[in-house]
């Protein structure tokens, strides 16, 4: 690997790590220094976790503009997730449900080609 690309890789790695580590470290110190239970900030932080998972789910399901045949891709994802959500009412095993999602999506790729 050329030196300029090596340096760039290390810089990007360090920046990515800093974005993860600094807020993590500062927040741990703050949460052990102060007792903010019940405050508005604590309530917002408690809601932010599930909100972020929901947002990540939406990003994974809604195809980006560059994706070809966006509507069929979106429909396949919705159908597969609907099956998983229905089965979840009976089975709450994370591993099995993930495998089910993969299987149903794979079948939809075969039976609902773009």
């Amino acid at each position: 690997m050329p030196t300029d690309k090596l340096i760039l890789t290390i810089v990007i790695g360090l920046v990515t790590y800093a974005l993860r580590a600094i807020p993590f470290f500062l927040a741990t110190r703050r949460s052990s220094d102060t007792t903010t239970n019940g405050s508005t900030l604590t309530e917002l932080l408690n809601l932010a976790g599930p909100a972020l998972i929901a947002a990540l789910l939406a990003l994974a399901v809604v195809p980006a503009p560059a994706v070809p045949e966006r509507s069929i891709t979106f429909l396949r994802s919705l159908l597969a997730l609907a099956v998983v959500a229905l089965v979840y009412r009976r089975v709450q095993h994370l591993g099995l449900l993930v495998l089910l999602g993969v299987l149903v999506y794979g079948l939809l790729l075969v039976f609902m080609p773009g």
């Binding site: 809601l47 599930p50 909100a51 789910l57 994974a60 993930v98 999602g101």
Partner: peptide
């Protein structure tokens, strides 16, 4: 198909949390 494991994982992690104001958020 294999990559669809990630959205499924997000959904399965989210489902048990969805009640009250968490659902709205």
């Amino acid at each position: 198909a294999l990559a669809f494991a990630l959205p499924t994982l997000f959904l399965v992690l989210l489902l048990p949390l969805l009640q009250g104001r968490v659902l709205i958020a």
